[in-house]
C-alpha cells in the first residue's frame, strides 16, 4: 500500500486583513478595475489599435512571410543545398534541385515550395541558409486564402515578393 503524502502548507499573511485575503484581491485587481471604470466613463480613449485601418509597425526582426533573395543581376541566390529543408521542424519546405548554368554555382532550385499552413515561422530556415537566400523580412504577417493550394508558395512567388526593409536595417536587426 502506498501511504498518502501529506504536505502542510503554512498559511500566508501576518495581519488580520492579510489573512482575510479579500482586501488583497481588490488590491491586485487595481489596474484591471482602473481600466474598466475609465473605459466605462469615456470610451474615446480605448487602448486599441484600429486594425486593419491602422497597421502595426513591423520591425526588421519580425519573422513574416518568406521570400527568396537574388543577386544584383537577378539570379537566384539559392543553391539548393537543402539546409533549410533539413532544418525545418515542420517539414514545410520541399525543394527539387537542378543543374545550373549561369556561372554562379553548379546547382539551383527548380522547385522551391513552402507550405505556409505548415510553417510555424520559427526562422530556422533563415538561420540555416549559408547563402542568405531565404529571408522572412517581407513584413507580411497576414496570409488569408480560401483554398489550401494557394498558400503553397512556389519559386515564382517567393522570388517576386520584395523585402520590406532596407539592406542596412535588415543587417542591423541584431541576430
Amino acid at each position: 500500500m502506498m501511504s498518502a503524502k501529506i504536505k502542510t502548507i503554512e498559511r500566508q499573511g501576518v495581519s488580520y486583513d492579510q489573512r482575510l485575503f479579500l482586501i488583497e484581491v481588490f488590491k491586485g485587481m487595481r489596474v484591471t478595475f482602473g481600466h474598466f471604470f475609465r473605459n466605462l466613463l469615456d470610451n474615446s480613449k480605448l487602448y486599441v489599435r484600429h486594425y486593419p485601418e491602422v497597421k502595426p509597425e513591423i520591425t526588421p526582426r519580425w519573422r513574416g512571410r518568406h521570400r527568396l533573395t537574388t543577386h544584383e543581376d537577378g539570379t537566384v541566390k539559392c543553391v539548393a543545398c537543402f539546409m533549410c529543408q533539413t532544418n525545418c521542424p515542420s517539414h514545410c519546405i520541399s525543394i527539387t534541385a537542378g543543374e545550373r548554368n549561369d556561372g554562379r554555382s553548379e546547382k539551383l532550385p527548380v522547385r522551391f515550395d513552402i507550405d505556409l499552413l505548415e510553417c510555424i515561422y520559427c526562422g530556422y530556415c533563415v538561420e540555416a541558409c549559408p547563402m542568405d537566400a531565404i529571408r522572412m523580412d517581407t513584413g507580411i504577417f497576414s496570409v488569408v486564402t480560401a483554398d489550401r493550394q494557394s498558400v503553397v508558395m512556389g519559386l515564382d512567388k517567393l522570388l517576386a515578393t520584395p523585402g520590406a526593409f532596407t539592406e542596412e536595417d535588415y543587417k542591423k536587426r541584431g541576430l
Binding site: 543553391v79 539548393a80 543545398c81 539546409m83 554555382s105 553548379e106 546547382k107 549559408p130 547563402m131
Partner: peptide
C-alpha cells in the same frame, strides 16, 4: 567551400 552544392556532403 562547395559543401552546399556538393553531392558528397
Amino acid at each position: 567551400i562547395d559543401c552546399p552544392v556538393c553531392d558528397q556532403a
